[in-house]
Nucleic acid binder design. Sequence first.
DNA 1: TTGGAAAGTCAACAATGCTGACGTAAATTC
DNA 2: GAATTTACGTCAGCATTGTTGACTTTCCAA
Lengths: 182, 182
Amino acid sequence: MSQTPGSGAGQAGLLNSGAGGAGGGENLLFLTDEQLRKGIEAMFFAYRGFTADPDRILETMDYGRAHHRALHFIQRSPGTTVSNLLGILGVTKQSLNRVLRSLIDDGHVRSEKGRRDGRERHLFLTPSGEAMEKQLSDAQRARMRAAYRAAGPAAVQGFRQVLEAMMDPGLRDYYNRMRDGG
Amino acid sequence: MSQTPGSGAGQAGLLNSGAGGAGGGENLLFLTDEQLRKGIEAMFFAYRGFTADPDRILETMDYGRAHHRALHFIQRSPGTTVSNLLGILGVTKQSLNRVLRSLIDDGHVRSEKGRRDGRERHLFLTPSGEAMEKQLSDAQRARMRAAYRAAGPAAVQGFRQVLEAMMDPGLRDYYNRMRDGG
DNA sequence: TTGGAAAGTCAACAATGCTGACGTAAATTC
DNA sequence: GAATTTACGTCAGCATTGTTGACTTTCCAA
């Protein structure tokens, strides 16, 4: 099982530079390099905002962004296994283990040996873990909610479409299966 | 001068949990916690995809994501100053200096003492720096282009609207001033 | 019973953040 | 003209989070 699927965003298109004249009848001005660069910057700046609020809270908790990610996906799929989480987060088991270790030691995550398959560990949030996750999630959702509200439902739909198209195929499948549901 | 502006995504809204009944006449289903969580995951997975292709190239160059960011914004605003870049990137001068130092030493960036204000250093890409930036940018734009093409122009507009609404106000201004132009 | 998968752990290292302190040059202010 | 502030560079030290590589334990499945 691979953690780095095929990618597959290889083939470039027309309109590689300059102002694009409408080539075949469609208006493809949104594919100019200029527009794409603006999109890249939008992603960069928005992601900064996206993580800013939880990061501030995490600092007071003596945890980092990696802990937040683990908490989020355990909350999302209670009982998920370590190796499932590895696939979702795309890090090495050593890196994830370090994060899980501290969360378990601090009593925020419970690790339960699998009953069907004893090698697996199923992960759950404890009440204190749930409280932490909620605090972080509330902050992040507040920003998201404000952005959604400001942009409106139609924009939100487009937002989700573009983001989904930007994912690696393997992660897109995870994304679509996650309580969509499955 | 501050590097961390006001933020200001504090106030939470209605519909904080469960299924939302249309409250005032508008359909606000897109603001449910469930929808917001999906949006958060979409941001996470999409950002992974967004950085994946340049990251692979950077590995072969012995540089990291931080170098890419510097190259990008110097390309975007040739002659920009160090302190301007600090504001955009949101890191400390020590952190940025380490990255710029290696790019300058390797001949990819040229630093020129300001003529009007001798304290400032204006940054430019050398030909080799431009080539590097282009290679990274091409890869990132290819993914962006594919996503844009798959989602269509209306979705792209919504995508940009939501991202812009998600930024911190200070960065939103930078974003809008950047060759929009200014 | 054996091979391999899942997990945990130790050690070492790299990239990229951070703080604090200090120095220099140049602009600005008093 | 002197004092202060600003922009930049740099040294030292440290934290987080990512990486390899090696090794062990557990345990399912053939």
